[in-house]
Design a protein around this nucleic acid. Structure first.
Length: 757
DNA sequence: ATATCCAGCGTTTTT
DNA sequence: CGCTGGATAT
């Protein structure tokens, strides 16, 4: 135990060893948050205060859960089985699998990912003859998910007008359809288990008496439903240990509610509030920069990071003439960092929106520097994998209409739109799944559909009692997917991925313990004598009953495929520069970080101005970006940028005005906007020549002002001339005043001053 | 049933 | 600019 606690600072130690009471840990960036969480669990177990089965630890991502698990097994001699450590969704899935009957779900219920959900909604709208111009599927999806995240069923949603009433109706119809098909979306996993626990008292009390300690990671990211779920699990007596950082709350747009931190403090009457402000990641100037910036936010719980590391290097700021030139500068700097011995994987290039990566990628590609872009397509999201998964889904639950439609005619087997229409009519008429409706379709369509049903049934029959990876192999053989892709020109990669699916299944079996000697493979009879009672309504059984009794390996694998879509970074393996959005950088750290495109409209993003609290969220995002850097931080912005096919002239980000001058070093002379003045500007010697010539073509000498020029206005401050129209006494200019927005000013009336010229 | 064209659109994302 | 999805042509 001494080992466990040594090397903790006083605040960390205090947090780790708090009594079994509600606690809120405000953990700043790089303050050892994960360490505190895992050490707390290890300490509780090791001091005998709680058995491993009494621990419930919740995270948002699978990555975080895995990290916690692996650190724990390094700390504790005992195995971590029996602890519930996972994502909200993963844990809810576990709960629902164990108590599927009480939850009103079929044993083989399947999980829709966002793409499945959207296609299901589209299908529903079509079936109900709803105008999808008036009710866009995407909006309906947001509506449904938003309501579920608030814990609201269709009947609970208040609609104030006809339009919204229709949304509510469609929400209800959607839920009914899901129930018919035996599928649940992500939000449903949470809502369903929330409802299960709240109406089933014995079950609730069972879990409440089990989980004495509930630990929550990234608490600032919880939505209202998750918060209420936690409240239910905690009951009156369990100790909730919430760790979070309000300054790093950047997911309001998807329902996260920072207010949960304050609510938690109040509702749980938190007596133990500990701030972790000692930062072990960044050098002083970087930290000062972060602190000074975030101090501009008014809604904060209050926290100031400190470091023992010394000032370190100043934060370098660079003004580029164009996005292309910005990219070239980044690459030059990155090159010299690497020459100085930096690892490529320790250098990150961050941007606000994905579209910005293109220019940077292009430059990196040309320069032949290995790089890796995060946020690409994930393994289980690939089309060929989705098709294979759909076959597996049909084998496990043939009433999944989405899966049915995806592969009924893939590879093509002569089942066209007309056959499907007939089938959908029948399914609607009898209120049954497409699969079940097949016998009701007559004629040629009926017979080709019939042979598809026979195929699925043959797959089920052939794979009975086979290990999971063999099931996948048989499915691949019988489906005809591989021959189909063999005839495609780009099919080789797809076939390779399909083969990887077999490996994924194998890996899953070995990791999750669905091995060959697990009861699942002993067949139904052996299972019945294995002595584990099946869950039913009369008896509370714990979700720790050996999983195969509640979930077949196939069901488990399909859950895994939906809940953990796989790696989302390309070209893993080699040492490469790291490119990603600021959002995906959260939780990571790098020796050197570039924050790029720091311009009004981009970062802070223009849309954030419209939203309540939007600007503060952008500032937190900037805070997250800054605090990713350990030793060296660069920030850059550009005077012109190609966005959506047109050139934009942006002001530099307002965030520059909120940084401590003493910690900064401007690499380019300030105020270089006089492109066409007498002085030679810094980038006249730049390797590319596009910008000046393009801009020059817009010079309007007759009105005395130039496009791209920075001007100052008494009321609006500094702005950039974006366009000039008219001439002489009738000339007006569109000027981008950044935070004051775009203005159209009469050049003969407005009193403008040149800036820097 | 597949290829090709064009209109429309464009913040952030995990499960 | 570059992608997606719907509509049309072969």
């Amino acid at each position: 135990m001494q080992n466990l606690l040594h090397n903790l600072n006083p605040e960390q130690l205090a947090a780790v060893t708090l009594p079994a009471q509600p606690a809120l840990i405000l953990a700043g960036a790089g303050s050892g948050k994960t360490r505190v969480l895992t050490t707390r669990i290890a300490w509780l177990v090791q001091t005998g205060q709680v058995s491993p089965t009494g621990i419930l630890a919740v995270t948002f991502t699978n990555k975080a859960a895995k990290e916690m698990l692996s650190r724990l097994s390094a700390m504790l001699p005992i195995n971590t089985r029996g602890m519930w450590i996972g994502t909200f969704h993963g844990l809810c899935n576990r709960l629902l699998r164990a108590h599927y009957r009480d939850a009103g779900l079929p044993q083989t219920f399947q999980i829709l990912d966002s793409a499945d959900q959207l296609s299901m909604i589209k299908r529903l709208l079509k079936a109900l003859n709803v105008d999808d111009e008036k009710y866009p599927p995407r909006n309906l999806m947001y509506f449904i998910n938003g309501a579920k995240d608030q814990g609201l069923r269709a009947k609970d949603v208040e609609a104030h007008d006809e339009y919204n009433r229709r949304f509510v109706e469609l929400y209800d119809a959607y839920d009914n359809q899901c129930q018919r098909e035996g599928v649940v979306d992500f939000a449903e996993l949470l809502l369903r288990s929330y409802e299960l626990l709240s109406r089933n008292q014995p079950l609730r009390e069972h879990y409440q008496s089990r989980f004495r300690h509930i630990l929550v990671d990234e608490f600032q990211d919880t939505n209202n439903l998750q918060y209420n779920w936690l409240k239910l699990m905690a009951g009156e007596h369990n100790a909730v240990f919430a760790v979070g950082d309000d300054d790093q709350s950047i997911y309001a747009f998807r329902g996260a509610n920072v207010g949960n931190m304050v609510a938690f403090e109040r509702e749980f009457r938190v007596q133990n509030l500990i701030k972790l402000e000692q930062n072990y990641r960044s050098h002083g100037h970087i930290l000062d920069t972060a602190n000074t910036l975030i101090a501009n936010n008014s809604k904060r719980l209050g926290k100031n990071l400190r470091t023992d590391a010394g000032h370190g290097e100043p934060v370098r700021i660079y003004e580029a003439s164009s996005d292309i030139q910005e990219a070239q500068w980044i690459i030059e700097e990155a090159k010299s960092l690497i020459n100085e011995g930096a690892l490529r994987s320790e250098v990150a290039i961050l941007y606000r929106s994905n579209a910005q990566s293109r220019v940077i990628e292009h430059a990196l590609f040309t320069a032949g520097i290995p790089y890796r872009v995060y946020g690409g397509q994930r393994f289980f999201e690939r089309a060929e994998i989705k098709h294979a998964i759909a076959y597996l889904q049909l084998m496990d639950n043939p009433h999944n209409d989405s899966a049915f439609l995806r592969v009924v005619n893939f590879p093509t087997r002569g089942i066209g739109a007309r056959s499907i229409e007939q089938l959908q009519d029948a399914s609607r008429q009898y209120g049954i799944s497409l699969y079940a409706a097949v016998p009701y379709v007559a004629g040629k369509a009926g017979s080709s559909l019939g042979s598809f049903v026979k195929l699925v049934e043959a797959m089920r029959f052939e794979t009975q009692n086979l290990p999971l990876q063999e099931m996948v192999k048989v499915m691949l053989d019988m489906s005809g997917l591989i021959p189909h892709y063999q005839t495609e020109k780009e099919g080789a990669d797809r076939i390779e991925n399909l083969e990887q699916l077999v490996s994924a299944a194998m890996l899953f079996v070995s990791e999750e313990g669905f091995g060959i000697d697990s009861p699942a493979f002993l067949g139904p009879k052996a299972q019945a004598t294995a002595g584990t009672p099946l869950p039913n309504g009369d008896e509370v059984i714990d979700a720790d009953a050996p999983l195969p009794t509640v979930m077949s390996p196939l069901s488990a694998f399909l859950s895994h495929a939906s809940l953990e879509a796989g790696d989302n970074q390309a070209q893993a393996g080699q040492d490469a520069l790291q490119l990603m959005t600021v959002h995906s950088a959260k939780g990571l750290e790098f020796d050197a970080v570039f924050i790029t495109g720091l311009e009004e409209g981009l970062f802070p993003h223009e849309n954030s101005a419209k939203e309540e609290g939007g600007m503060e969220e952008e500032r937190r995002l900037m805070y997250v970006a800054i605090t990713r850097a350990k030793k060296r931080l660069y920030m850059s912005f550009s005077q012109t940028r190609m966005l959506h096919g047109q050139t934009r002239y942006n002001m530099k980000s307002r965030f520059f005005d909120e940084l401590p001058e003493g910690a900064l070093k401007w690499l380019s002379p300030k105020l270089q906007h006089h492109w066409f003045g007498n002085k030679k500007s810094a980038w006249d010697d730049a390797p590319e020549s596009g910008v000046n010539t393009i801009a020059q073509s817009f010079v309007r000498k007759d009105v005395g002002w130039r496009i791209g020029e920075t001007v100052a206005h008494q009321k609006f401050g500094e702005g950039v001339i974006v366009n000039i129209e008219g001439s002489g006494t009738n000339s007006r200019a569109h000027i981008n005043f950044g935070r004051h927005g775009m203005k159209l000013l009469d050049l003969n009336i407005a009193k403008l001053e040149r800036v820097g010229g």
